[in-house]
Write a protein that binds this DNA or RNA. Sequence first.
DNA 1: TAGATTGTTAATCGATTAACAATC
DNA 2: TAGATTGTTAATCGATTAACAATC
Lengths: 236, 236
Amino acid sequence: MGTANVPNPTIRRLSRYLRKLDELSASGTEQISSIELGKSLGLTPSQIRQDLNWFGEFGRQGYGYDVKMLRENLADILAMNRNFTAILVGAGNLGKALMESFGFTDCGVHLLCAFDTDPQKNGTLINDIPILSMDCVAEYVNQHNVDIAILTVPKAAAVTVAENLEGCGIRAFWNCTNVDLLAHSRDTIIENVHFADSLMALNYFIAERNDEIAKRENRKANRIIADFRVGGGCVV
Amino acid sequence: MGTANVPNPTIRRLSRYLRKLDELSASGTEQISSIELGKSLGLTPSQIRQDLNWFGEFGRQGYGYDVKMLRENLADILAMNRNFTAILVGAGNLGKALMESFGFTDCGVHLLCAFDTDPQKNGTLINDIPILSMDCVAEYVNQHNVDIAILTVPKAAAVTVAENLEGCGIRAFWNCTNVDLLAHSRDTIIENVHFADSLMALNYFIAERNDEIAKRENRKANRIIADFRVGGGCVV
DNA sequence: TAGATTGTTAATCGATTAACAATC
DNA sequence: TAGATTGTTAATCGATTAACAATC
């Protein structure tokens, strides 16, 4: 179980496995083979077995995987039971949306509180989570065990806020701002949720597809014109 | 310029290049080499040149790249000037947050309107974007050219809503629900923004790092104990 | 036992890095 | 011209797929 250098793509598939297993569990399925699991996720059975093999032997020959058992193992691997704590920084629209409707608990993360510069928000609650003044963040981090800082501040503030938080000792960031952050400590981990990057990639794929379709139609039109010529039609 | 099968990782780096070039432009830099650009993004110069080479020759030997010119080329490649249109489906917390603070225009996307089942919201505006009744969505899509549907509906509704929209002719989804969607048409493109997947990956990396640190400390402690023994100390 | 499916090794495929001639 | 840096080919590295003996 040398989990030292598990490939990044593997790690990012684990939560998809978890989600699918939860679905299966909910619908009463107790067993699944890598073949079936692969089919439902658009992956090859080989890939699934390779992925799981980084962490242990969870299956049984001739049977497949026990859904509940594999689910628990994946939850362990994804550290869902370590109860990591988080603070949210920037209680604007996105921060509020996350507090109100994102399932932190389902990810095994305990959101302690949020911080915002707006004095109006200071002392209020959003979905039972207290909003504190940004001035208190250093003190708070010193006095509590905070594993993760969730960054939902405006673009312009992102770099300075992140630097300050790293200075306070925060060593993991869930970066929801559209800014590339640079860690100072080698131990610091930055995970980006780059909305804009995702939307731009979608743009690219749409343009590519549209061009492809246009090309197809063009070929069709040319074929019709060619047929017309062969048929003796005149072209202006 | 056979852009047919540009590697996915390349496509996902393009928006990072664009962002960095905008920064450089803003700070008055007119020229940059692949060496410098790579340094500032944590990539090798080779990779940058390889990425760009999929799309054309944008540089000049002995000089590097003209910042503004490369920026424009990337914007073109990322279809920023095609003015794709979008509707947002599900004006809940996340949908509202996107409407209020996400820079659609900066991504070259024109958000036309939003749809929600809540009759209270029907007819209201969020950041000048009208919220219409979910009942009208089919008719709306029929009468307007809609390139993208942005999905911000609750988990439970995601699959049916997506199916209905695809039935209406939508062929591109920006999926912000934490649900794996399956396209029916081969032309349909689904781009996922999976918050939960990202947070769980972060969880994994934190756990890995913490274990690594614990191991280090352990080795240190053992070394101290060993020294103590060598020094003649007694161990209980 | 026979059938199924695993864990794992080997083969293939794809992406990244290195190297270098071309040239601004 | 000399120095720098590109575009591009070749070498390396890593991830995915295929194959199969082990075994439930």
